[in-house]
């Protein structure tokens, strides 16, 4: 399955390969307008290319005994391959990355909840910065959308985290590629801010409107690899007289976000608050928005205190086992919990 064997003109073939469309499966779900945009060709030409592709892949599928019912459908085998090659967004805390299977996954919705002051917003800002780490440094080189419902996003903090991230890349350069130092240009911390699209929403109507608008926005902007909503909850905890309406609105929003995650191969991170729930005679902490909401996310991470240390607990995941890991919020951002902390405590 190689693009180079397709019966199309050489210039189109070259454009396809240089734009990263090397396999037929990468062309199977792309729209003609998107392809035209990426290849800088007319839409008619793109349609012609896609026709050739679908004819070819159709015949191959029959040869292989596959039965793709719909355009864009994938086999589990293809999906496994794609997942193995996909890059995660690191949290900058390696212990946390380990329990998450490498970091925050694209094409998934990850919900993160915890008490005020535990570091939800810090993690949100960290991801908005880390998604921009270029692929040469093991990152995605993407852009971030930050939807702020609470007004907790502070630019100076984002700048601080970006500075630390740029510093880390510089150190990495010094360690591993002394020779090519000169030709690499490290991003200025302020350039990180330019790739964070910040929406401040003040009502739940605005929140829903922005989420509905994202599809258009992302297809215009390209390269958006993470959407962070900090927090998904706040506007929905006011007086909703009609709780059924609330459930419907939340459900609709969750579906929209899941669709975005799949369609644009990006990670969706929803920050949630915690609330107390009366259960079997005592009050217990749970994530807010109720039971039906818990289906909205692929992964759920609960941040909590354990003595003086912050811990993240992976509560729900379709592919990973439940586990917890310590992390720390430092001046540089999210990092591993310092191991000497424990030693100090023992003494």
């Amino acid at each position: 399955m190689e693009v180079s064997t397709l019966p199309i003109s050489a210039s189109h073939r070259g454009k396809l390969i240089s734009s990263g469309y090397t396999s037929l499966s990468s062309l199977s779900s792309v729209s003609p307008s998107r392809l035209a945009q990426d290849l800088k060709i007319s839409e008619n030409e793109a349609v012609e290319i896609l026709k050739v592709v679908s004819r070819r892949s159709g015949s191959e599928k029959i040869e292989n005994g596959n039965h793709a019912i719909m355009n864009g459908a994938q086999t589990a085998w293809d999906m496994l391959h794609e997942e193995e090659s996909s890059v995660c967004i690191t949290t900058s805390c390696s212990d946390l990355d380990v329990i998450l299977g490498g970091g925050i996954h694209c094409k998934e919705v990850t919900e993160i909840g915890g008490v005020p002051g535990i570091g939800k917003t810090q993690l949100g800002i960290q991801l908005a910065v880390n998604v921009q780490i270029p692929s040469g440094y093991g990152g995605l080189g993407g852009k971030a959308i930050y939807i702020d419902t609470e007004g907790s996003f502070m630019v100076e903090r984002a700048l601080q985290i970006a500075e630390a991230c740029a510093q880390d890349m510089l150190e990495y350069d010094n360690l591993l590629r002394k020779d090519s130092q000169a030709c690499r240009v490290i991003k200025q911390p302020k350039a990180f801010l330019e790739n964070i699209f910040y929406f401040r929403v003040c009502t739940y109507t605005e929140q829903i409107a922005v989420i509905n608008y994202l599809e258009k926005f992302i297809s215009e902007q390209k390269d958006v690899k993470v959407v962070i909503v900090d927090s998904i909850t706040f506007h929905f905890r006011q007086d909703f007289e009609d709780m059924a309406l609330r459930t419907r609105l939340l459900g609709g929003m969750a579906l929209k976000l899941m669709k975005l995650a799949k369609q644009f191969k990006l990670a969706v991170v929803l920050l949630n608050q915690v609330t107390t729930k009366y259960k079997e005679g005592s009050f217990q902490l749970t994530l807010a928005l109720g039971d039906s909401w818990s289906h909205a996310s692929t992964n759920r991470i609960i941040l909590h205190w354990n003595g003086d240390e912050r811990y993240a607990y992976l509560d729900k995941s379709p592919s990973l086992q439940s586990a917890s890991a310590p992390y720390a919020v430092t001046g540089k951002g999210i990092r591993n919990a310092a191991p000497n902390c424990k030693r100090v405590k023992l003494m």
Binding site: M154, V155, E156, A158, L159, K190, L193, E194, I196, F197, Y198, F199, R200, V201, E206, A209, V210, N212, Y213, F217
Partner: peptide, 16 residues
């Protein structure tokens, strides 16, 4: 009011 109006870009570098 349109959703794109809620975007603040580029971000200021300091909060007053």
């Amino acid at each position: 009011m349109r959703p794109e109006d809620l975007l603040r870009h580029p971000l200021p570098t300091q909060t007053p």
